[in-house]
Amino acid sequence: MIEFHLDPQTGLSPYRQLVRQVRQALRLGLLREGEQLPTVKEVVAQLAINPNTVLKAYRELEHEGLVAARAGVGTFVTASLAVASPEATERLRGQLRRWLAEAHREGLDDEGIEALFATTLRDDTHEDIA
């Protein structure tokens, strides 16, 4: 069972934070197929959060095919999220190292690199949605 938390610093609405935390837990193997998510009442009692927010997050996860609700019992994980294979992870890490070396040669410091990465990732994500 995972425990949710809310971080006001993220700028994400509470509902998006819940969805993201379930996805992250799936990626990290903290949640596995067949396991149960906390009930709406448990999340509401723990976080002092609007029940509709929890329902909306669970509905979105259901829509994505990651969880399924069983009437009167709760919401259960029905899928796992693809995690890159160890080989692919190593290959991507190598590419990133070469890219970082080039960025440093061009005079970018860590903060500049983080800013460039964050804006590029955001633009890329936006394009996916649009």
Binding site: V40, K41, V44, A45, Q46, A48, I49, N50, P51
Partner: peptide, 14 residues
């Protein structure tokens, strides 16, 4: 404050 809102949200569900 948090405890108050927890009580309120629990009541809203129930």
């Amino acid at each position: 404050r948090r405890e108050f809102l927890q009580t309120l949200m629990e009541a809203a569900v129930e």
